[in-house]
Design a protein around this nucleic acid. Structure first.
Length: 374
DNA sequence: AACAGGGGCAACCGCTTGCCG
DNA sequence: TCGGCAAGCGGTTGCCCCTGT
């Protein structure tokens, strides 16, 4: 069955010949492609417009970057896929010169297998059930898996579900706050799913103002601000299970840090993303976040921008989300950053959802909550 | 050398979305 | 508001090539 757009005409299908390519390139270069359905006719091709469009976009476009994906690109794909899922076109926008088709193929042929080999579910980026269970029962990671990301968190953890966004653009855009690591406690390393220590843009990180808190315990600080009541603020140290607040019920912190064992929820405002580290039977996976050394090559800026409802430096929260229904914290300033080099970003949407972090009364889900302007 | 199997990639299919009359 | 059309997009298919036997 042919395309509906070309069912009336006899069109050639299958691989494109060099002659056809040449015709298409010549035509597009000279005239552009205001209307794809008219392109084959004008270019003298026995193809449908749709086919021409695909050929141009996926193969002939002059700005395409061919060849194997770099490690950086691979990391970007994994990171963005974790947020967006199989939205290949959106993911591809973060990879200059790559097409959605290319990204999709690379994912299906390469990355997916890597993740599975590492015991991670390529759909959710969480540990696969079997791996998760063995970890939760203290059996440790798959012996065949040497990925340090799968080692236990030194603070008492579980399996890692790593995720990073290296986003200089966003880092600079967000008026984030950071908590310097206590000198006596080295921040835990963070690895991406291919076992690489994750990196951030040091320059961008340096531009980020330091978090005013002097955290004493090496934990993760979260501060909440009630947008409706200026000055009202609360902070929670999830790692240490301590908290302080001027106005709000921070049951969430207690629940996370105490009720669930070594649970923690981080947020790195430098990327506007959450990091979660929860060790519980309900939520598998622990995030270990750390700022880290500058990498030689920076990934392309992700151009992630908050959309309507989000304010720079703030992440829209729901009253019942972070505090278990206690207080109103419509806007939350949340910070969690280790290290002098910048902020690690990690989050686990599914985890957050399962833990009710984003489960407001409305229909919005976590993905909707984190609107990305791609 | 021949064959089978698997992987990678280009292209297709069909659904969704957006625009316009 | 509705219908038609074109473009966009994600899933799937099928071909080609490489590798192992």
């Amino acid at each position: 069955m042919g395309h509906h757009c070309c069912s009336k005409q006899k069109v050639k299908r299958g691989l494109w010949s060099p002659e056809e390519d040449e015709k298409l390139v010549k035509y597009i270069t000279a005239h552009g492609h205001s209307c794809w359905s008219a392109v084959p006719k004008h270019a003298g091709l026995q193809r449908c417009g749709k086919s021409c469009r695909l050929r141009w976009i996926n193969y002939l476009r002059p700005d395409l970057k061919r060849g194997t994906f770099s490690e950086q690109e691979e990391r970007t794909i994994i990171d963005v896929h974790r947020i967006l899922g199989n939205r290949w076109a959106q993911i591809a926008k973060h990879l200059p010169g790559r097409t959605d088709n290319e990204v999709k193929n690379f994912w299906n042929s390469c990355i997916k297998k890597k993740l599975i080999a590492q015991g991670l579910d390529p759909k959710t980026h969480n540990l696969l059930r079997a791996a998760s269970r063995s970890l939760l029962h203290g059996n440790g990671p798959n012996p065949s898996n040497t990925n340090p990301a799968h080692q236990f968190h030194p603070n008492g953890g579980g399996a890692t579900t790593p995720f990073t966004i290296s986003s200089p653009t966003k880092s600079a855009a967000y008026d984030s706050v950071m908590a310097p690591p206590p000198p006596e406690m080295a921040p835990p390393p963070m690895y991406d799913v291919v076992g690489n220590l994750m990196g951030h843009d040091q320059a961008a990180a340096a531009a980020i103002p330091r978090y005013p808190y002097a955290d004493s315990g090496g934990g993760v600080l979260m501060s909440f601000r009630d947008q409706n009541a200026a000055g009202l603020q609360a902070s929670v140290d999830f790692m240490n299970g301590s908290s302080s607040s001027s106005s709000m019920d921070h049951a969430a912190g207690n629940a996370f840090s105490q009720g669930m064992g070594a649970a923690a929820a981080f947020m790195d405002v430098t990327a506007g993303m959450w990091a979660t580290a929860v060790d519980s039977g309900m939520c598998a996976g622990i995030e270990v976040a750390q700022a880290q050394q500058q990498q030689q090559q920076q990934p392309p800026p992700l151009q992630l921008q908050p959309q309507a409802g989000m304010v720079q430096g703030e992440v829209v929260g729901r009253p019942a989300v972070m505090n278990g229904g206690g207080a109103a914290a419509d806007m939350m300033d949340v910070s969690s950053v280790y290290g002098p080099g910048g902020g690690a970003t990690a989050f686990d949407l599914e985890l957050m959802e399962s833990c009710g972090l984003f489960c407001g009364g409305g229909a919005a889900n976590a993905m909707e909550q984190l609107q990305w302007d791609c």
